[in-house]
Amino acid sequence: MCVTCGCGNGHTIIGGHALRQQRKPDGPLHFRSHETDAQVADVSAPRIVKLEQDLLAKNDGYADANRRYLSKHGIFALNLMSSPGSGKTTLLVKTIAALNGTLPLAVIEGDQQTDNDAARIRAAGAPAIQINTGKGCHLDAQMVGQAVQQLGLQHNSLLLIENVGNLVCPASFDLGEAHKVVILSVTEGEDKPLKYPDMFRAADVMLLNKCDLLPYLDFDADLAIEYARRINPKLRVIRISASSGEGMAEWLEWIKDGCSNAVAAKPEESFG
């Protein structure tokens, strides 16, 4: 798609298949063949066309469709976002191991390249599909919708979506999830919430990860949480360590509550 930086949907691969585009992006426009010459002359004069269309409207439409599908089937979906290296995948692997057998779950893995993370998730015992965005910097709702169809999710289950490691772009793209979860690790700077406010504002939960390393670092956990709550006063924070297991019980409890609520809120089946 973009030949200069390569960004965009042109090279997106979902579970080994190319992203299906609804319309060929560079396809020819045929819209005047039915018009008379007089009409053509009329429309060729310069004029102003009012549009008032949101740039994210198309993504939001796909996200709404995903949300309806997930809600209809009692699926609790989380969109996990962070910088690269915050420990997202390790946290997911530990989460899957801890939940093993208690509820059905599946994972959508987003990375620019490689199937490595999906392979790690499958090795942990959960079905996973990899979305490779090529040079793209975020998942969007259309990609996730297609991944959901390919995965064939179980009803009344948990869907974990690991976004591309990036603390900026994924914040803008609704995927249809129930909650956005941002992961900040204590090996980063305390002021990341101030530097990347959109992400912390979009999230409902922040996992402060790698807390087992705090004794060896200068990182001020209270200050990091204060900064995050300046951006988002309602942000729920869980101090966690995928390695030591600290905070995992609270995180798992929160997930289980979310899953129960998703099942309870399922619209009644229509038998008419």
């Binding site: 798609m1 930086c5 960004c7 740039l55 198309k58 793209g136 772009c169």
Partner: peptide, 18 residues
């Protein structure tokens, strides 16, 4: 660099209007 995606969305909106 999600601006490239936003620019693609702009073009789609323009082409749909056309």
């Amino acid at each position: 660099m999600h601006e490239m995606s936003l620019a693609e969305n702009m073009l789609r909106i323009i082409e749909d209007a056309a």
